[in-house]
Amino acid sequence: MIRALTAFLLVLSLLPAPAAAWGRLGHRLVASLARDGMTPAARAAALQLLEGEPEPTLAGIASWADDLRDNDPDLGKRTSKWHYVNIAEDGCVYEQTRHCRNGDCVVEAIRAQTAILADTKRPKAERLQALKFVVHFVGDVHQPLHAGYGHDKGGNDFQVNLDGITPNGGGSNLHSLWDSGMLKNTGLDEPAYLARLRALPAPTLTPGKPLPPQSVVWAEASCAIVRRTGLYPARAKIGPDYLQAWRPVAEAQLRLAGAELAATLNAALVRR
């Protein structure tokens, strides 16, 4: 009982604010997995763009798009809708005119920013910013609740209580649990978690050419996970059985996101 109580308190103490898919750890893991799958030429091109960054790696820029809320509030506000798309109410079938007016959703943001990244005639600063967006948004679209229901803001309004144990009598929400709680509950640090994900079977990538990115397919597949029985628990109180059932799904999505990001960057950074 004491061990279980400690684990639940750990989860809840680590749950982030509700807007950042996967949280900082998850985004860094996706970026590091992507680097594994990049060609030497694509890695070199990425490093050229990253010169001068505080941490000039894909992992180092992976959470930049979330950090805009504090570092550049105007750009953060203008791009806030680029992190998600709500399609679960419509059977997980994406329609641009219905779900993404003016290109303001993660599906079209990935397409637009990848095109900017691939255009070598654009200034380096524009391409670097596009790289930062692409690395982040490919991670976002593979977090199931970023392609979920609009009525509860992707699970942000769906309250959960881990076995009734919450700090200071407060609760949490399903989106936050998926963002970081399930990952950090393992107690693994970043290198150990990266090794864990690398040990998973190589995922099957989306058929078709990497450019334009298959972001519609990614979003619809993530949405299908949201609609699986049990992802939304029948009761607000959930226990370790929920974490045991759904953490492997989250980890498989992280692994897939890394592989799809690698394929996208390989195509965008080394044009033939």
Rank of each mutant, 00 (worst) to 15 (best):
A195S: 11
R127T: 06
V141E: 02
C105Q: 04
H175W: 13
D152F: 08
E108H: 06
R122F: 01
T186F: 04
D152W: 00
T114I: 10
G169M: 10
N156C: 09
G154A: 11
G171M: 13
E108F: 03
G148M: 09
D189Y: 11
V106H: 07
L188N: 11
L145E: 01
N161S: 15
H136T: 14
R196L: 14
P167F: 08
Q143L: 15
L188A: 10
D189M: 07
M182E: 07
N185K: 09
L200K: 11
K121N: 11
F158C: 02
D152V: 10
L162K: 02
K184F: 07
K153Q: 14
H142S: 06
V141R: 02
A118Q: 15
E126P: 02
G148P: 12
L194P: 02
W178K: 09
G154E: 01
L197N: 01
Q113D: 12
L131S: 05
G139A: 06
G139W: 05
R127Q: 06
G181Y: 01
A147N: 09
Q113F: 05
Q159F: 03
H136D: 10
R198T: 04
Q159N: 05
D189L: 13
A147C: 15
T114Q: 07
Q143C: 15
L131W: 02
D104F: 05
G154Q: 07
H136W: 00
V138Q: 03
L145I: 12
A115P: 01
K132F: 11
N156H: 02
N185R: 15
A192G: 06
S180R: 14
R122D: 08
P144S: 12
C105P: 06
N156F: 08
E108Y: 03
D163K: 02
Q129S: 11
V135Y: 03
N173I: 13
H146I: 01
A130L: 09
L128C: 09
G181I: 05
L183H: 09
D119H: 11
R122N: 02
F137S: 02
Q113C: 04
R111Y: 06
A109E: 01
V138T: 14
I116K: 13
Q129Y: 06
I110L: 02
P123G: 09
L128I: 08
Q159C: 00
D189P: 13
V134Q: 00
V138H: 04
D152R: 05
L200H: 02
T186Y: 00
P123C: 00
P167Q: 04
L183C: 05
G139Y: 03
L188G: 05
A147V: 10
G155C: 09
A118D: 03
A192H: 10
E190D: 04
S172A: 15
L174S: 10
W178F: 13
L174Y: 00
N156A: 15
V134W: 05
T166L: 14
G155V: 12
